[in-house]
Design a protein around this nucleic acid. Structure first.
Lengths: 264, 264
DNA sequence: TAGATTGTTAATCGATTAACAATC
DNA sequence: TAGATTGTTAATCGATTAACAATC
């Protein structure tokens, strides 16, 4: 297959940067809220604030879509909603399947935001025969045996995996073989897929670990730096050094029990 | 407060890039799996494959942590598990609260990966009085009235918000006022928080929309480019242009019903 | 010593941002 | 016209990657 992709093939038609694509849904959400309040126009400054980004970035992002604003005035809310929806492919209907109807799968099935924007839950699929036929979020759970036919019959191209980690790759393989080309993975595993298949990953424990990293840094900064020598030479044995749990700072200032990592 | 942060204050002690921090949990997961299989050492190449990144990036990432490998040999699995855990702050105990015990909150409470790595669910909190006392994942649901005392008593610094969008900001404000400084937000809203508080967001519908964007592109590319003129002049009215739902390509090649966006 | 693999360099690429000319 | 705000430029910053010298 050759990982070759020397100069980025011109294939990437009207190239919108990934970072921009990832923000379009945020803009769309903010615009939808404005639309519901019947606000006719909005400036980049206002919209940026609502979406939680800065206005220069927003204008740059919009410039990739075209010139949809009016200098001195701002952006027409309805028009922009339509343009962004179209760009994201939300003006068409995307049937999706959710595989793995445990706690999480059921939560996803019940999630309203699903239906609202172009997505339609075509089927809920679970490997447990006891689940088959049971209604979840108004849909009867289907058995895994039917996976291929469900995908084919409904023209499903997007699959959501909410199975345990151990089953995820196998489910993924079947989804892909049946024609799914985009996967949203909630199972804590790295999925391997053939080229041309997109995988996005939602991982609770990764997010928590990133927060813990920053949280630890905050605790460390309270006593200011100069607390560790060079970071390299560290005891290869040592049972995990623990702080007395939490060491929370209600606010910001130092609160006593800080040393999170003490030098050997 | 001055948004001022001219040259990036030296505060950022031993600065590890954000992109690297976000990958450390991936490496840790792969390493933990190796550790369970009692694999003693691993090369950057092998580990990178397991984590789904390329080896140059992995080595660069590790170089920020220190020199923990051995040239010609690789990395000691146990040692690296310990070092990354420590770097991420997982060698200490992080009590967390989950607010909003609907489908999603319950799913999160039941999620095993939570407890396994340094995180402990200190309490489940819900605004519905009818939920109070009910056991979910072995813990009795507590009423929102108790939020502040729970946080203070348990030294909670990380909060998970799984409420409806409408309640999220208010819950966030109370969490922050009570001392929480890191928030994982599952509600589809932009939260505003004071400086010093970290927010990470998990948003199903954003992820789906990003997938839809790429999915649409795939459909478009099958007929190759040159199919739309300049993108600008688009009908301001026009009911959303629709494809016959799906227009799926089983595999890669063209499959007949392709044109996703047709010129007006 | 010969082979393997790390840690680091330097080039490249992509994303962010302030600033401002264009223009409504 | 004067005021407002977009769309774009250019500088800067951060992330990725190939390549290879260092070294086990």
């Amino acid at each position: 297959m050759a990982t070759g992709r020397t100069h980025r093939p011109a294939t990437r038609s009207r190239g919108i940067p990934e970072a921009t694509v990832a923000r379009l849904p945020l803009y769309l959400r903010a615009l939808t809220a404005l639309s519901e309040r019947s606000v006719p126009t909005v400036s980049s400054e206002e919209l940026a604030t609502a979406a939680g980004v800065n206005s220069a970035k927003l204008r740059k992002d919009f410039s990739y879509l075209g010139s949809y604003g009016t200098r001195g005035v701002g952006y027409d809310v309805e028009y922009l909603v339509y343009q962004i929806s179209r760009e994201l492919g939300l003006t068409q209907d995307w049937p999706v399947v959710i595989v793995g109807i445990g706690n999480l799968g059921a939560a996803l099935a019940n999630y309203g935001g699903f239906a609202s924007r172009g997505f339609r839950v075509a089927a809920l699929i679970d490997a447990d025969p006891a689940m088959a036929g049971k209604p979840v979020a108004g849909l009867p759970v289907r058995h895994t045996d039917e996976l291929e036919s469900i995908i084919t019959d409904n023209g499903v191209s997007i699959g959501v995996i909410a199975t345990p980690a151990g089953a995820a790759q196998q489910v993924c393989d079947r989804l892909v073989a049946a024609g799914v080309t985009s996967i949203l993975n909630f199972a804590p595993t790295v999925l391997s897929v053939p080229e041309g298949v997109d995988v996005r990953k939602v991982d609770l424990s990764i997010e928590l670990q990133i927060l813990a990293f920053h949280e630890q840094r905050k605790a460390g900064e309270e006593t200011t730096s100069a607390q560790e020598p060079a970071a390299a030479a560290q005891p290869r044995s040592g049972a995990a050094v623990r702080t007395p749990a939490g060491g929370r700072a209600a606010g910001k200032g130092p609160d006593g029990d800080v040393p999170a990592v003490m030098p050997a």
